[in-house]
Amino acid sequence: MSPKPANVHARLPLAFIPPGSVVRLAALGDEIDPLQREQLLAYGLAGNHTLTVLQQQPMTVILAEEVELALEREVARHIWVEREARAAG
C-alpha cells in the first residue's frame, strides 16, 4: 500500500497539512470504514499519487488528479501522506 519514495519523509495525517501543499498519498489508515475505503479507492486515492490540499475548513478539500474531493476531518485524519513540495500560490 505504501511504496517508499527515494527521499523518505515523515508520514502525516492529511487533516494536518496546510492548504496549498502538494503531498504524496502513503496509506489509508485501518480506522477508515471498509466501505468508505473502497469509496476512496474508487475516487482515485490509491498508490502513491500526489494530492493538492486546497483547504482544511470547514472540510478537507483536495485535488486528486482532476477530481476535487471534500473529506470530513474524521476521514482525513486517517489518510497518511508524505510532504512533497509547496505548490505555487
Partner: peptide, 10 residues
C-alpha cells in the same frame, strides 16, 4: 453516522 466524502464536480 457516516462521515462525508463527496466529489465536488466543476
Amino acid at each position: 453516522r457516516i462521515p462525508l466524502v463527496t466529489e465536488l464536480p466543476p
